[in-house]
Design a protein around this nucleic acid. Sequence first.
RNA 1: GGCCCGUUCGUCUAGUUGGCCUAGGACGCUGCCCUCUCAAGGCAGAAAUCAGCGGUUCGAAUCCGCUACGGGCUACCA
Length: 473
Amino acid sequence: MPEVRDRYAPSPTGALHLGGARTALFNYLFARQQRGQFLLRIEDTDRVRFKEGSQALIEEGLQWLGLSWDEPPIVQSTRKPIYQQAAEGLLASGAAYRCFCTPERLNEMRADQRARKEPERYDRRCRAIPPEEAQRRADAGERFVIRQAIPLDGTTTLHDLVMGTVTFQNASLDDHVLLKSDGYPTYHLAFAVDDHESRISHVIRGDGWLPSAPKHLLLFEAFHWDAPAFAHLPLVLGADKKPLAKRHGAKDVLEYREAGYLPEAVVNFIAFLGWSPGTTEDILTMDQLIEQFRSDKIQSSPAIANLERLDWLNGQFIRRLAPDELARRIAEGMPGVSVDALIPLIPLIQERLRTLNEAHEMLQFFFEDPTSYAGKPLVPKGRDAVQTVDALARVRSAISPLTEWTVGVLEPVLRSTAEQIGWPAKDLFMTLRVAITGRTVTPPLIESMGRLGKARVLERLTRAAAAVDPTSA
RNA sequence: GGCCCGUUCGUCUAGUUGGCCUAGGACGCUGCCCUCUCAAGGCAGAAAUCAGCGGUUCGAAUCCGCUACGGGCUACCA
C-alpha cells in the first residue's frame, strides 16, 4: 500500500482561523493515524491578496495547536519555472492552449451571457487558434494565459471520501486558466503539480473545491499522473451562519490563546465540528483523536461553531491538568508572578476556571491588598457600622493568638465567633470575604485566609475596620 | 441563470447493512441537592412529529422520487 501523505495548503492572506485550523487538524489526524506524513504548503500565487507575515502567523497557530508538519513547507511563489514548464507540456500535448482574450473582451462576453441567461463560461474562442499561430503571437510578445482544454463531452466521476460519488458532465466545465499572464500559476495548476511532486496520497480540503474537483481529475489525467484520493470537508460557519472563511471577524486561533484557552480544548472543539467518533465520548486528547479518526465519519453538512461549548471544554481540560502544569500556564499570563508562588493556590481555583485568564482576576487579592471597599457590602443587611466594626474586632482577637494557621483550626474558631456575636456564619463569612479580598466572589474564604497567612489577614482586617463607613445604617 | 452539495432538539452530534428509536449523548437553559460567595459536582427536567410531500415495505430518520429551504462554485482568488 502506498504511503499516506497529506497536507494543509493555506494561502497567506491572513491568519489561521478555526475553519482553516480544522482542515489542518483533519489532515494531521489522518496522516498520524496512518503513520504517514503531514505536510504544509504555502499557496502564495496570488500576489494581490498576499499578506506579509501571514505565513509566520499561520505556522505559529499550527504549532500552538500541536500540528507539526514533517517537511519544510513548499512555497509556491519560488517555483514559477516549474509550473511554466508543466503548462508548456500540456500545450505540447494539446491538453491546454494559449488564450489571448483581453480582460475587456472577457467582461463583455460574460455580460452578454448574463443578459441571455446563459451559463457564464469562457467561450473557447482561442481554443480554435492553430498552435503555430498561437506560438507566433506569443513570440511576438502578445500577452496570453494558458487554459485547460476540457473534453467537450463525456463525464468525470469523483469518488470522494466524504461526499461520496459525484458525477459531472464535462460539457458543464469551464476552460479555466492554468497559467496567468504574469507567469504565475493559478491554484489548479500549482495544486496538481505540487501534490504530484510531493507524492500526496490524500487531498483533504474545504468543499469549496468540490466543483473544480473534476477539472483537477482531468488535469492529473492530462499529465498522465495518478490522482490522489479526495475528501472534501463541509464548511465551518460562525454563529451568524456565515462561513468563517468569508467573515471579516473570523478570529485568529492565536486570539484564543490570548483569551486563555488551552490548545487541547481548541483541538477537541474543532475536531467535533463535522466529525464524531460515533460514541458518546466528547473529551478526547490528541492521541485519542489520532487513534479514532475516520474519514467516513466526517459529516457532509456544514457545522456552526458553538463557542459556549468551547468554554465548557476549556474548563474540562483545565480540570484535567496537573496542578503544577496549570500553574505554569497561568504564570505565562501573569508577569511578575512565579510558578512557585502559584502552585499552592491552584487547588483553590482549578475547578472554578473556564479560561486561564480568569485566574488573573481570581488570584489578584493574593498579590495585592484591596485598594478600596467602596460599593462592597462590608456591612451585612440588617446590621450597622458599629456592629460590623465590632465583629471584625472580635474575629481579630479570636484568631490572632492562633499558633497553628490552618483551615482545620480556623474554621471552628470563625464559626464559634459568629455564634458568639449572634451572626449567621454566612453573614460573617461574607463580611470577612469582602474585608480580606475586597471582593464578593472569591475562592473559598478560609482556604484563602490560610494561604494569605496570619499577618496579612490581620492587617487587612484592621484596614477594613477603618474603612467601614460609620454613616451606613 | 448554470453546475454541485446539504437538511435529526437553539447548537455540536448518535443513528450508517431498514425493526433494539415511544430518536440517544453533549453544550446551553430550568429546577433540586451540596454549599462561606462563585464555580465544580450530583440528580431531575423542558427541548427534534428526523425539512415537506409522495412512494417501496409487514415495518423508514434510515431506500427511491419530487418540492421547499440553506449553502458553495460559477475570477488571469485560493
